[in-house]
């Protein structure tokens, strides 16, 4: 069965002044998929997800979301149309309570946010215990859960996670990837950017491998894991 296209990025070019951060990147994300972007630091993964959200200016190329052209739309309209980004470094608001952080995630949600809260508390019971605690006092892993939960508050049609495993202990990272798979099984479409290539590929359907500012390889996640090129470059394979 052909699944419908959620996100389609075509020949995207982005520059920071004279530096070309993205040079003709094209990716697709279909409904119900986990798609992973892997690549070294500075390869352009963060630039890509931030450009999709309308934070960075597009020099050339097109971005379509649910069939609609969002290339030059403002971030607030893109968020309102159903994309959320769980940013690198989590981006929680440390001096606001867990509850307030969650409610901020529902800034554009039209309807009763308490339904979303119920779902989130069942996924992340620890957040329920800490509802009134200042978000800055949570542990790193809990803050990452809060950041994901806050994204869920907007009932997104596409969740983008940028380096969610960064700075987390290996056991927490394992749990995080399990949660990402759970979310996907619950129906969420996910675009994941990760340096932690092996674990990310193991939970994904498809993957794109970034060189510097461009995609050098793409395809089925299982095939990418076993590809010798990927193993050498990103999975700690032997160097020539």
């Amino acid at each position: 069965m052909a699944k419908s296209n959620v996100l389609k990025v075509e020949d995207l070019h982005v520059s920071y002044g004279p530096i070309k951060a993205l040079r003709g990147v094209s990716i697709e994300v279909n409904e119900g998929e986990i798609v992973v972007l892997i690549g070294a630091n500075g390869a352009g993964k963060t630039t890509l997800v931030e450009t999709i959200l309308g934070i960075t200016h597009v020099s050339a190329g097109r971005i379509h979301f649910m069939g609609e052209d969002i290339t030059h739309k403002k971030t607030e309209h893109i968020v309102a149309s159903g994309i959320c980004l769980i940013p690198e470094g989590r981006g929680i608001l440390p001096l606001m309570s867990v509850m307030e952080n969650l409610l901020l995630g529902a800034h554009h949600f039209k309807g009763d946010p308490s339904e979303n809260l119920k779902l989130i508390y069942s996924l992340f019971p620890v957040l329920k215990e800490r509802t009134n605690q200042m978000a800055g006092t949570l542990s790193g892993g809990e803050q990452q859960m809060l950041s994901v939960a806050r994204g869920l508050m907007s009932a997104p049609k596409l969740m983008m996670l940028d380096e969610p495993s960064l700075g987390l202990a290996p056991t927490i990272v394992k749990e995080l990837f399990r949660r990402i798979i759970d979310l996907n099984r619950a129906g969420y479409t996910i675009l994941l950017s990760e340096q932690n290539a092996r674990q990310a590929l193991q939970c994904a359907h498809r993957g794109y491998v970034f060189g510097t500012g461009e995609i050098v390889l793409s395809g089925n996640a299982q095939k990418l894991v076993s590809s010798s090129k990927v193993q050498q470059a990103y999975l700690g394979g032997s160097c020539e």
Partner: peptide
């Protein structure tokens, strides 16, 4: 607290 996070959350800056 964070203009960047506010923007990500879709707050019209």
């Amino acid at each position: 607290q964070s203009p960047f996070s506010a923007r990500l959350l879709g707050i019209p800056i």
